[in-house]
Computed example of a mutant assay.
Amino acid sequence: MSLGNSISLLLAVLCIANASAADSPKPVIVCSTTQVADFARQVVGDRMIVKSVLAAGQDPHLYEKKPGDAQLVSTADLCLENGWHLEGNDWMRKLAEQSGRPLVTCADGCKPLEVPGVEQAMHDPHAWFSCTNAATYVRNIRDAVAEVDPDHAEEYRSRAALYLDELRALNTWILREINKIPVEQRVLVTSHDAFNYFCQAYGMKAATPVGWSTGNEIGAGITPERRQQTVDSIRQHHVKAIFVETSVNPTMVREIAREAHVEIGGELYSDSMGAEGTAGETYIGMMRENVITIVQALR
């Protein structure tokens, strides 16, 4: 065989191999929430396809399964949920079970805060608002994808290690920024109890008129007592501003602001990140923007 023919044969083999690799489908991860999806993308890079059931601005507590959700989940090699009943009536868990797909609860391993005012013990599901807890989510995802795709486990560990460094830097920055607010002004009033982990981690006090969920689960919903407690807390601490949330109807908070004679300090990302192209489209972006909004309004 001539040299030219040998080279042609080699090129043909390489083309076939490359075409075969290109045709090989990437594993699919289906996530319940936008935060979980962002954590997953940070770990897998382009190695896997990451999809989210929820879109930016959607409320996981109130979300109702749609006909296409079961089809989406059925394509997954791995499903990821926040867990701890963030997904109202455990809709993500039910979708995964119905499709027979493996499911990882990303909040597992975090130190939970208990939902106050309920007879049965329930974990507050908004654990990602502490950067330390967010790191636990990332480790859970790292370990899960390494099991799905062990051939590239070292890649996933490397990406996760870099992202964990970024979360530690974010945590340090948040502490520094919150320290700009006078101690007596560090009261965070929002639409519902989404920020208890944030307040515990960063030295603030939470006050909300609604419980941990915007849905009708146990312990959720506004009561006259909670509303009055919120107004009293605003007045007692001479709170300068209160906040609405991007995924929650702002009407009630605006009414409380008028009643308590305080300003609306801005919109905070809570149960959902921002839309693509916004400053809050990633977890680090949403946390950064939230902190800047809080500090500018309360300092």
Rank of each mutant, 00 (worst) to 15 (best):
G265R: 02
N249R: 15
N249E: 14
G274R: 11
N290T: 09
I256P: 02
A279R: 13
I264N: 01
G266A: 05
M273P: 00
S272T: 12
E276K: 15
I256F: 00
G265D: 08
I264C: 05
G266F: 03
S270E: 09
V248F: 08
S272V: 13
V248H: 02
R258D: 11
I284W: 08
M273Q: 04
M273G: 10
P250M: 05
T293C: 08
T282M: 03
M273Y: 08
A279G: 12
T251C: 06
G285L: 01
E263S: 10
Y269S: 11
E281L: 08
V291G: 03
E289P: 01
E263P: 01
E289D: 15
E276Y: 09
M287Q: 06
V262R: 06
G280R: 01
M252I: 15
A279I: 13
G265C: 08
I256Q: 00
M286H: 02
E281S: 15
E289N: 09
A275N: 00
N249V: 12
V253W: 09
V295E: 05
I292Q: 14
V248L: 08
R288H: 13
A257T: 07
T278L: 01
E267M: 12
T278E: 09
V253Y: 01
E263M: 08
A279F: 00
E276T: 13
Y283R: 13
E259Q: 14
V262C: 13
A260N: 07
A279M: 13
G266W: 01
E263F: 07
G266T: 04
A257V: 00
V295G: 03
G277A: 08
G280Q: 08
A260C: 10
I292Y: 10
N249M: 07
S272L: 02
V262F: 12
E289C: 11
E281W: 03
A275Y: 04
G285M: 04
